[in-house]
Design a binder for these strands. Structure first.
Length: 473
RNA sequence: GCUCCCAUCGUCUAGAGGCCCAGGACACAGCCCUCUCAAGGCUGGUACGAGGGUUCGAAUCCCUCUGGGAGCGCCA
């Protein structure tokens, strides 16, 4: 590995669906590792047993793989720093906890949630920052034992050192400085014995050899706690980079509740993974290239130094732009696979591939193809109001001519339309629009010639007759 | 309330004192091309949150304010 190689990670918590903000953090971490010749670790933060679900985890991993993000270490692939699920790393945390305790840097806390909430309220009301009041910080060993004997299960708090200045250089925001006196003693082990985010996350990043932690801006103010913890433990400190948040179009932060921007939903709508990556690499990052980037080109256009410091809004119009690009950059075979079951009414093989070639330029999402499939396979199609107007304008005789000229020009669209032009005196839009309207029921769509070829003469004739009837009324 | 982060077109961004009466992309409008839509080509409008400094010169540096966000959880 190059000396500048970065070891990065993504550490999702399987308590919900991955949204675009998560996806961007994952993508940037992955790209930072790839661009530097380093590697990328995936770790599962499932310490909250009550909210973590295996099904959710599988979905997250699946969405990540679908996006094209692959991990060098983590669930399913193993690696030297496993296990990669925090729920299986209990002994590692126990060791860290023991070390902190031996150093006198922890103490058990018996305060109830109600007491803590009240305390916070009181402090807030008197204009002070709500910090833990160290109620249990001075409990004697006898006291502690007595409470435990009477059945109380304490949480463990980290004793934050007084009057310390914690400094670090954020890879995105630059030099940071915090005062330890602004930080209350925080819980590192819950009463149920599970380890808190602050401890588990920091210990794992360090123990797994992560050199750069890229995460959301919302963790910036958490970083000094973790630095203090790691320092007390004598463990190596990773560098940190805090990515600005991704906001919903409304300007509010993207939350797990806003399903619209979840990877799973985007995928279900038919968005292509490459489209999402092309969008994401330009969201809060100046990639310096306006054109389409294939997945293997992404890393060479990624530069941590080009990352924005301010939050970015999710704009579906831009995602759609990249979706269009993704469709045009896909091969016909890929499109056929993407369209999947929407093509069932068509014969596999030649008919499907011909159809794909014809409609490719007109489709953004698989569901849009249904109508077009109907045009090709159904006997009748719904006729839009615009199309009906076109048909009426042309009049019944137009369709009589078109129908009678079809037999002599079967399979020759150009010859057929020329013959209609000669017979009716119509050309250009006045010729093609009524024809398109009669044949497809719509005033717009893919190129007419190949579409007609796909329809077959019988269907064409039937639709001409119906148009004739429609125009006659 | 305290601490911290952030602030350029509608959106994503370029811009690290003069190259900027601010450039690109998406979106929007008009035109061209075209049987239509899409694509493509051309044209157009729209932005440095406010106020003070510093400087010959500020979108760029400093301060204040305003606005947005985060953290201060036995959530992560």
């Amino acid at each position: 590995m190059p000396a500048t190689a970065l070891i990065t990670r993504f550490a999702p918590s399987p308590t919900g669906a991955l949204h675009l903000g998560n996806a961007r953090t994952a993508l940037f971490s992955w790209l930072a590792a790839r661009a530097s010749g380093g590697h990328f670790v995936l770790r599962v933060e499932d310490t909250d047993a009550g909210r973590s679900q295996d099904a959710l985890l599988e979905r997250q991993l699946d969405d990540l793989r679908w996006l094209g993000i692959t991990w060098d270490e983590g669930p399913g692939v193993g690696g030297p720093h496993g296990p990669y699920r925090q729920s299986e790393r209990g002994s590692i945390y126990a060791e860290a906890l023991a070390k902190l305790e031996a150093g006198g840097q922890t103490y058990p806390c018996f305060c109830s949630p109600e007491e803590l909430q009240l305390s916070r309220k009181v402090q807030l009301a008197s204009g002070r920052p709500p910090r833990y009041a160290r109620t249990c910080a001075g409990l004697s060993a006898v006291d502690v034992q007595r409470r435990i004997d009477s059945g109380a299960a304490p949480a463990i708090r980290f004793r934050v050192p007084d009057h310390r200045t914690v400094e670090f250089v954020d890879r995105i925001h630059g030099p940071q400085r915090f005062q330890s006196d602004d930080i209350g003693d925080f819980v590192i082990r819950r009463a149920d014995g599970s380890v808190s985010f602050f401890l588990g996350n920091a210990v794992d990043d360090s123990a797994m050899g992560i050199t750069l932690v890229l995460r959301g801006d919302d963790h910036l103010a958490n970083t000094p706690r973790q630095l203090l913890l790691l320092e007390a433990l004598g463990m190596p400190l990773p560098e940190y980079g805090h990515l600005p948040l991704v906001l919903a179009p409304s300007g509010t932060p993207l939350s797990k509740r806003e399903g619209a921007a979840s990877l799973t939903d985007l995928r279900a709508q038919g968005y292509l993974p490459d489209a999402i990556c092309n969008y994401l690499i330009r969201l809060g990052h100046a990639c310096g290239h306006d054109g389409w980037l294939a997945m293997d080109q992404l890393a060479s256009h990624f530069d941590l130094a080009r990352t924005s410091h301010s939050a970015a809004r999710f704009d579906e119009a831009q995602l759609r732009h990249w979706q269009r690009e993704a469709v045009t950059h896909s091969t016909d075979a890929q499109i056929e696979q993407w369209l999947g079951g929407h093509l069932d009414a068509l014969q596999a093989g030649e008919e499907r591939s011909a159809f794909v070639a014809v409609v490719k330029g007109n489709v953004l999402f698989p569901a849009e193809v249904d109508e077009l499939v109907g045009v090709v396979v159904h006997d009748s199609v719904p006729v839009s109001a615009d199309a009906k107007a076109q048909i009426t304008e042309a009049g019944p005789d137009f369709f009589v001519s078109a129908g009678s000229l079809l037999a002599t020009n079967a399979g020759d669209f150009k010859g057929w339309t020329r013959a209609i032009a000669d017979a009716t005196g119509r050309k250009g839009a006045r010729l093609f629009m009524p024809l398109r309207s009669a044949l497809t029921g719509a005033t717009h769509g893919p190129e007419l010639a190949p579409l007609v070829g796909l329809m077959g003469n019988a269907r064409v004739l039937g639709r001409l007759e119906r148009a004739q009837a429609l125009a006659g009324k």
